[in-house]
């Protein structure tokens, strides 16, 4: 990535942080019961000043580039699996959902080339680990979990 592109990316991020700081200040400061919101207002004010400072530093290139690459495609799958899993956990049951999360993540991200072995390894690992989780949470800690349609 060339220097100009890096600078523009950093500037956009600083602008986003500034907008976020502005929003936090707005929701903290403009409230009816100002006494209840006094502390968050002060904190939000400080946050806004700091995000302005961060923006100015980026505009005048007064800081180092501390950005790391974001492998969006690699992570999107994991995030979707987690979000969908938690969404259906109460409906389907916690153990079934987390078994599916284990299976999907360990299969998708495995670097084994042979698909058959990959599936067998993922199923074995997921079954073993969910058994461990069952012993830990349901047997030892006696945790009540949402059972849903399945388990």
């Amino acid at each position: 990535m060339n220097i100009k592109a890096i600078l523009i990316r950093r500037l956009y991020v600083a602008l986003l942080v500034l907008l976020l700081g502005g929003y936090v200040f707005k929701v903290s400061y403009f409230q009816e019961n100002s006494e209840a919101y006094l502390f968050p207002s002060i904190v939000a004010g400080l946050m806004l000043i700091l995000s302005m400072l961060s923006f100015v530093r980026e505009v005048f290139d007064l800081c180092v580039d501390d950005f790391k690459p974001i492998p969006l495609i690699d992570q999107t799958y994991a995030i979707i699996v987690m979000v969908v899993g938690v969404s259906v956990a109460e409906w389907l049951g916690m153990y079934v959902t987390t078994f599916c999360i284990l299976l999907l993540i360990s299969y998708w991200y495995s670097n084994q080339r042979d698909k058959g072995r990959r599936i067998i390894n993922s199923v074995l690992f997921s079954s073993g680990f969910i058994g461990f989780i069952y012993i830990l949470f349901s047997v030892t800690l006696n945790l009540q979990l949402p059972k849903g349609l399945l388990i």
């Binding site: 994991a78 987690m82 899993g85 938690v86 956990a89 987390t98 999360i101 284990l102 993540i105 360990s106 991200y109 690992f125 997921s126 680990f129 969910i130 989780i133």
Partner: peptide
């Protein structure tokens, strides 16, 4: 995968 499930 194990950490995700433990975290949940």
């Amino acid at each position: 995968a194990a950490v995700i499930v433990l975290a949940i």
